[in-house]
């Protein structure tokens, strides 16, 4: 009787302990990545290769999503602003929403589901097929050879993707606001230019995306490395990457926003 009552608590306890263990492991893992990053710099082609897989292959989804998000912002922004007679401010609205929040956050979410999950699956499969063991036995540290280049590739790719997302969004907003609805193109840009500050908006947005890139890639490589080396284990790890990344991005966004703006 008492046992059945206690079971949920025991399970909760196990879950908490496991969560703390993983937090400890991911911190140690992060340190290990930083300490084993020298090779990523001396053999930069390893990083370039991963930038190709993480960054270049994400271009299409970023361009298309950015364009659509900008178009939606343009449409929704217009219908709201026009009620207050300030439809001219559309450019500022679109640009500020994208630069400060939507660009970094949505690009990071897309990056997590496109590249983060791929990284987890790749490293998880390398673990399941003993490729990481093989590397270890060949006296090659898998963290230096496999994990660190992916981590830095993610950190470097993310701001580029976020910047591209912003540009595509602003162009999408321009298309809807100016070309479809017929607002004045000049005021779209001038309102934007009058209200966007390079440091406060553009640079802070880029800094955000740098943090997001580091967080998403760290989670992705960690989940791959920590995955149970079976097909089911890898697929569970891939799911965890996407879910954890999404939560961490949003939480981190709140913290960074509170610090920056």
């Amino acid at each position: 009787m008492l046992d059945t009552l206690l079971t949920p608590f025991i399970r909760l306890g196990h879950w908490v302990i496991e969560a703390i263990r993983r937090l400890g492991f991911i911190s140690r893992f992060f340190l290990a990545i930083l300490m084993n990053s020298a090779q990523s710099l001396t053999r930069f082609h390893l990083v370039i290769r991963e930038i190709y897989f993480a960054g270049v292959l994400s271009l299409i989804i970023i361009i298309v999503s950015g364009l659509f998000v900008g178009m939606v912002l343009g449409l929704q922004g217009y219908t709201t602003l026009v009620r207050f007679g300030s439809a001219d401010a559309l450019g500022a609205l679109v640009a500020l929403s994208l630069l400060r929040e939507l660009g970094p956050v949505l690009a990071a979410l897309l990056f997590a589901s496109r590249s983060g999950s791929a990284m987890t699956a790749e490293i998880g499969l390398m673990k399941a097929t003993e490729q990481l063991d093989a590397m270890n036995v060949m006296a090659v540290n898998p963290i230096a050879r496999v994990v660190a280049p992916r981590f830095w590739a993610g950190v470097l790719s993310m701001p580029v993707l976020a910047a591209l997302f912003n540009v595509m969004g602003i162009l999408g907003g321009y298309y809807v606001g100016v070309i479809l609805i017929g607002l004045d193109g000049g005021s779209y840009w001038s309102q934007m230019q009058a209200n966007v500050d390079l440091h406060v908006d553009v640079v802070n947005g880029m800094i955000k995306s740098l943090f997001f890139g580091a967080a998403v890639t760290l989670i992705a490589v960690f989940e791959g490395f920590d995955a149970t080396p079976t097909a089911a284990g890898v697929s569970a790890a891939t799911t965890r990457t996407v879910v954890t990344s999404a939560l961490v991005i949003l939480a981190l966004d709140f913290v960074l926003t509170a610090f920056m703006f």
């Binding site: 930038i51 270049v56 640009a95 790719s157 840009w189 500050d197 390079l198 908006d201 553009v202």
Partner: peptide, 24 residues
Amino acid sequence: IDLWVGIFVAIGLAAVTFLSLRVA
């Protein structure tokens, strides 16, 4: 791969330039 990553970096630079000159 180098070529594609080069294009990628160029796109990134262009995007940042656009954001700082045209937008900000």
